[in-house]
Write a protein that binds this DNA or RNA. Structure first.
Lengths: 182, 182
DNA sequence: ATGTTTCTGAACACTGTGTTCGTTTACTTA
DNA sequence: TAAGTAAACGAACACAGTGTTCAGAAACAT
């Protein structure tokens, strides 16, 4: 069994680094943020950074953890039916909105959410369909969802999570249900 | 008037560099391809590279030029009607398929096509709509298109351009027309 | 054949990465 | 609260990649 309580310093350092990265991502694109930038902003020694994370990417990934946990929670507490894709998307919109101002950024979502959603959707879709390849359908649905999420965050949450979910469903459901049962 | 005929050496060098980059992109992700990799593959001196292009990004952009020209051609020779989004997408699928094995890669499309398509679509869409923000609609349509294009190329063109366009239309049209005239 | 343009290749300064290690600081718990 | 442990610090280092410069060689147009 793993040690549950971390040293305060560890907690503190990791949070400083995550916050620093998230701040910097809002100021310039992720690719242009250097490890040097992050440790300067966080006021943390260079060697300390590398004691906690292999690289910038892993630091970013660690910040995605809370949202990933929410995602897993949702999945474990629900069986699949026709409504569940829209319930899942609503949950995602709401979780993102709830932590607005927290350290989850668009970069986190764009880099890590796709994989989780795709895996889930592929496994809950019929394996074969004469009208469209199921992997294409799954890819389309997830990409559309992330496209809407991207617009929403890029434009600084111009409407509610519920409204966004409505848009998502109105745009995507007609085409997908039509092509699946054509 | 600009000089029309370029020195053979210039033509040769630029093409070597474009081809080298496109080859390398197929072997590893664009971000991990270095200028060093490119000039080694192209057998071109370091200073020659920088005599032609400011950086890797500009070399990539130069490779997108032919597709961009096709795009502009299409636009100049057509007025807008209800069919034109699907005609445009069909043209794009066909152009990409035609140059399969050429030097336009998925990276080119993902990095440069979005902007062009979005500008075009936004200007040919009603400015106001009570059901959905027009910019969201445009963003969704373009993102979906690029999502399908991405799947198509990633999976090495598993079906025809015409078939892809059919999928695109079947998936996207029902939702968009429904939400616009609801 | 000549004058011009381009390519070459080596050198250089610079920025960023990731590691190492001896020292200092802060935390835990007995 | 003192002692022992764990973490943070920071300076140094090797390395990889960027972008520039310039003198000389090669290829080009006419």
């Amino acid at each position: 069994m793993a040690k549950k309580v971390l040293d305060r310093r560890v907690e503190r350092t990791r949070q400083l680094l995550q916050n620093a990265l998230s701040e910097l991502i809002l100021e310039k694109e992720y690719e242009k943020v250097t490890v040097q930038d992050v440790i300067d902003r966080a006021n943390v020694g260079r060697s300390t950074f590398y004691a906690h994370f292999e690289d910038k990417e892993q630091l970013l990934r660690s910040g995605f953890e809370p949202l990933r946990a929410q995602f897993e929670d949702f999945l474990s507490g629900a069986e699949f039916d026709m409504e569940s894709p829209w319930a899942l998307s609503l949950t995602m919109f709401q979780q993102v909105q709830k932590q607005k101002g927290g350290y989850i950024t668009l970069t986190h979502i764009q880099k890590f959410l796709y994989g989780y959603l795709l895996d889930h959707l592929k496994s809950s879709l019929p394996k074969r369909n004469k009208n469209i390849p199921p992997e294409l359908l799954a890819h389309y649905v997830v990409s559309s969802f992330i496209a809407l999420m991207t617009w929403w965050i890029d434009n600084d949450y111009p409407c509610s999570a519920e409204q966004m979910n409505k848009y998502f469903r109105q745009l995507v459901e007609p085409g997908t249900s039509a092509i699946m049962h054509a």
